[in-house]
Nucleic acid binder design. Structure first.
Lengths: 240, 240
DNA sequence: GTGTGCATACTAGTATATCAATTCTACATG
DNA sequence: CATGTAGAATTGATATACTAGTATGCACAC
């Protein structure tokens, strides 16, 4: 769970001439992660005003790393910076949500197809482990942990397919969907449904059934679209 | 051609409470654009060392906006920052290129399908105008202008499909492919081939033939994959 | 009562200074 | 001659200071 480390196209992993590691964890990274989580979890609601100075004081650092973090958040569409005026937590762009779903279907459809082609028994065991944990968490009602395992499941499929970079793109796209979904009331039995859909996807991968895998993934992604119209009437200030 | 303005998920376009525009062009933006273009055009070759101080002097500004620009470039995978050591123009990550092609096929396949469904006569005229200009530029041998129109063609399809955000993702993915392609010698008649493929795609859209449109796009994207293996032997320092 | 203009109090953008970590080099030592 | 080490130099990371836009509220004219 380190969004700071994610890039659309990962850079080089090792370099003979420069034996140093690429990018250690810096103050700006830590602040980015903290703000990122607070925004996605809606602890900082859409529309909330932010101030570089105030945040800097809260973290007991200077404005410089805070500013770096805010710039990165603005690139991800999580904050809007109005020059010489102010910075606010971005409202969820409703128009972007259907598009985000389209992107997920296109990309995750491809990854799951590829995963179905080449998944090894070890890969399947990884998926099984995630599903098992997720089932337990759903029984416990641990929505936060459940969500983490949900991400892990989709990430694992991307890794199995051999497309780790795609997961970085997906994460940046998922974030707006996730923010909207956090606003929906916990629907009874939804977590169980998600586990069931994951299990079906896992089985299609195990059967190396490419078409069924894509179909199962598409169905899964369609099932979890938040009802934006309803949310918009309930939280009008949170969308735009 | 303003990569600075692009975000994966566009923020809000207007806001009742804050009538100001979102993000004016700042010094850091200008430097980012300049460095971005110099890197993509290989004016700054992979592996070239960069220094915040020197760049700041060249632009006659302080190191702060330079640093902002470099951080954004590093997120896009165009520079690698080695803490307390140095910053270099990133080598092209060969492993990322096949993945980038996969992403393009998935995303552009989807956009062209949707475009074929809903394209209006006006939309087609826009594509025709681009193809006409591109044909002229190919005759003139203007590779730079040709490349700009090539981007315009793919962007237009995304817009026609109603997925403007997808274009932002595609641009960030395309950049590594484009860098590799700049290294290939100009193949005689390749520009003509591209124009022909674009024309076919345009025709399938005009015919509202969804399947043919995707097939044509997939073929087009397969045809322009740079021969990484050959490039790697010719420019070993540029890849990793 | 309403609209306009200006003073003021903010904000983010930029510049400069300081810090800390890494690397490179030179020299002493075996 | 090889090698290890001290220290100087260079780099990015952070702190602080300053500049220039923007919004806001009040006074004043109409």
């Amino acid at each position: 769970m380190h969004p700071a480390a994610a890039t659309a196209i990962p850079g080089l992993s090792a370099d003979a001439e420069r034996p140093t590691k690429l990018r250690r964890v810096t103050t700006a990274d830590a602040i980015f992660d903290r703000l990122y989580n607070d925004i996605v979890s809606l602890k900082m609601p859409p529309g909330m005003a932010l101030q570089e100075k105030r945040i800097a004081e809260d973290f007991a650092v200077s404005r410089t790393p805070v500013r770096e973090a805010l710039l990165r958040l603005s690139e991800g569409g999580l904050v809007d910076i109005y020059p010489q005026s102010g910075t606010v937590v971005s409202r969820v762009p409703v128009s972007a949500i259907p598009e985000a779903v389209v992107v997920r279907k296109a990309l995750e459809g491809t990854t799951v197809e590829r995963a179905a082609e080449i998944a090894s028994p070890y890969d399947l065991s990884r998926l099984d482990a995630i599903i098992t944990r997720q089932r337990a968490l759903s029984i416990l009602g641990d929505t936060s942990g459940f969500h983490e395992e949900d991400e892990a499941f989709h990430e694992a499929i991307a890794q199995i397919a051999g497309y780790p970079g795609i997961w970085g793109i997906l994460k940046s796209v998922k974030v707006q969907i996730d923010r909207a979904r956090r606003l929906t009331l916990p629907v009874l039995g939804r977590m169980e449904n998600v586990v069931g859909e994951h299990a079906i996807i896992r089985d299609t991968i195990a059967a190396h059934d490419v078409d069924a895998a894509r179909a199962a993934m598409t169905h899964h992604l369609s099932a979890v679209i938040p009802d934006v119209a309803e949310l918009r009437t309930r939280y009008p200030d949170y969308f735009c």
